Simulated scan of single mutants.
Amino acid sequence: MKIIVDQDKCVASGQCVTAAADVFDQRDEDGIVVLLTDNPSEDLAADVHQAAAVCPALAIVVED
């Protein structure tokens, strides 16, 4: 699994962090998504897919 985030699309809603805090964080200054790892372990796959699904800006792409 590979994750790609588009920080230019991000609207800083924080839904990704709520869904997968081990994979996503937000910058302190503006809340834009920060990817903690672009290749997380398979046990986090469901959380990562949920984060991509709930992102209101569609800023997260997951490649399996």
Rank of each mutant, 00 (worst) to 15 (best):
L35G: 12
V5R: 08
D64A: 11
D22M: 13
A52T: 09
Q15V: 09
A45R: 14
V17Y: 07
P40K: 03
S13F: 13
L36S: 06
N39A: 11
Q15M: 07
V48F: 11
A21V: 02
C10R: 06
V62P: 01
A45G: 09
D6K: 15
A19I: 01
A45W: 07
A59G: 09
R27L: 13
P56M: 10
E42A: 06
S13L: 04
V61C: 00
D28H: 06
R27F: 11
T37G: 04
A19F: 04
A51D: 12
A45Q: 14
D47K: 08
A20N: 04
E63Y: 08
E63Q: 13
A21N: 08
M1G: 05
D47I: 05
A59K: 12
S41T: 09
D43E: 15
A45K: 11
V17K: 10
G31V: 06
T18G: 00
K2N: 10
V17W: 13
P40S: 13
R27E: 14
H49A: 14
V11W: 13
V34L: 06
V48H: 07
A57T: 03
A19R: 11
A46V: 04
L44H: 10
A12P: 10
D22G: 09
I32W: 00
D30F: 02
I4D: 07
A20H: 05
D64K: 03
T18W: 05
C55W: 01
V54Y: 06
C10E: 03
E29A: 07
A46S: 10
D43V: 15
V48S: 10
A51K: 12
F24E: 09
V62S: 00
D64T: 08
L44P: 06
A57L: 09
D6T: 04
V5D: 09
Q26R: 15
E63G: 03
Q7H: 09
P40L: 08
E42S: 10
T18N: 06
V23C: 02
A53W: 09
C16E: 07
I32T: 12
V54S: 01
M1P: 01
Q7V: 11
D64I: 02
A12C: 00
D22R: 15
A52R: 02
